[in-house]
Design a protein around this nucleic acid. Sequence first.
DNA 1: CGAAGGTCTGAACAGTGGTTCACTTGTTGT
DNA 2: ACAACAAGTGAACCACTGTTCAGACCTTCG
Lengths: 205, 205
Amino acid sequence: MAYRKTPAVQSRLDAAREHLVEQATSVVAESGWANASVTAVAAAAGMSVGSVYQHFSSKGALAVEVFRRASGREVEVLAEVLKDAGGDPVERLAHGVRVFARRAMERRGLAHALLAAPAEQAVARERLEFRRRYRDVFAEVIREGIADGRLPPQDPDVTAAALTGAIGEVLVDPLSGPADGDAAEHLVAELVAMSLRCAGARTAG
Amino acid sequence: MAYRKTPAVQSRLDAAREHLVEQATSVVAESGWANASVTAVAAAAGMSVGSVYQHFSSKGALAVEVFRRASGREVEVLAEVLKDAGGDPVERLAHGVRVFARRAMERRGLAHALLAAPAEQAVARERLEFRRRYRDVFAEVIREGIADGRLPPQDPDVTAAALTGAIGEVLVDPLSGPADGDAAEHLVAELVAMSLRCAGARTAG
DNA sequence: CGAAGGTCTGAACAGTGGTTCACTTGTTGT
DNA sequence: ACAACAAGTGAACCACTGTTCAGACCTTCG
C-alpha cells in the first residue's frame, strides 16, 4: 500500500463536513428550504457540488442533518429551562415560554425554517418529531403543575400541543413584524400571560 | 360572423371549470399539494392537460382558487358561529372552537392541506391571509368578551393567533390519530376547555 | 351544408435541480 | 521521485413537471 488516510486528513474532512452543515444552516435560515439547492449550498460552503456528496448520500440526508442539529439545540435549551430552572412548575413554564419566544425572535429565519417553512418530505417528517419533542417537554412540566395542585386537571398533551402551536403561530406570523425592542417585549409578555392562562395558572390576571 | 358563444356553451364551460376545481380539491385533500400535479388533476377531472389551461392561466392560479374556496368556506362558517350564534361571547367562543374542531376532524385531509401541508409559494401566501382571517374573527369575539367583562384584559390578536395555532397543532398532528367517536369527543372537549382557559374565561375549572 | 371560429387533445418542449462520473488535484509511503 | 490511491471538481445526465401549440373535433350561423 502507498496511501492510507492520516488523522490530519480525517480531521480536515470532518471540518469540511462541519463547515458544510453550518453554511447550509445559514442558507436555510436566510432563504428557506426552497432556495437551499445543492448548488447554492455548495457555493455557500465554498466547495463543489460533487464534494457535497462525499459527506452526504443525498440532499435529503444533508437537509435532515441541518434540521436535526438546529432543532435539537432548541429542544435541549427549552428542556433544560423547563426541568432545571428554579421555581415551581408554573414559574418554570413561564420562563420556558419566555426563552422559547426570545430565541425564536432573535433567529427569526431559523425559527421559521424549523416551525413552518415549506420543506421536502424528509424534513417534514423530522419536523413532526421535533414538535412531538417540544410537546413532551411542555407536557411534563404541566403534569408536574397538575400534580402539585398549581394547575387544574387537564389533558397535558393537548395543552402542550396547543402551546407549541400557539407560540409558533404568534411568532412566525409576519404581521408581528421584525419586532423591535419594545414591541418584542410586549409580545413576549403577552405570550407568557397567554400560555399561563392556557395551562390554567391562576396568577395571570 | 358565423359563430358566437352561446349561453349553453358558456354554462358547459362553467360547469367544466367547476368540476375541475372540485376534483382538484379532492386530489389535494387526499394526496396533498405535492401530488396535485397538473397531470393528476386533469386526469381526476377527466379532461386533458391542455384544457386545464383553458380555465386557469397557470397551475398556481388553479391552486389558489382551490385554496380560496375551501378556506373561504371554513372562515365563513366559523365567523357565522362566532358572530351570530346565541349566547354571550364566551359561549360563542366555545361553540366556535367546537365547530372548527369538528369540521377539521371530519375532513382531516382538507384541514391538513389548508393548515399545514407543504405548498407552493402562491398557496403559502393565501394561507397567511387565511390564518389572518381566522385570527380576526377570533379576535373580534375576544374583544367583545373583554368589553363586557367576561374575559380579562389581554391582547386579543395574540390570543386569537394562539387559538388558531393551538387548534391547528392539536388537530393536524397525526399522533392524535384518526380519532374515532369517543376519542374525538374527548379531544374536542379538551380543546374547548383549553381555548376558554387560554382566553381567560372563568367557567372552565 | 360549409365556412368561421371556437374547444379539446396530448405529445413535444423547456426549466429546474438532484445525481453521477471521468477527470484533475492532493496526499502518503517507499 | 514515483506509484498508489483518495479527495475534489463541475459539466453532463436524468427525472420530473409546468407549459405550449399544431392539429382534431365541435358548435354556430348564413
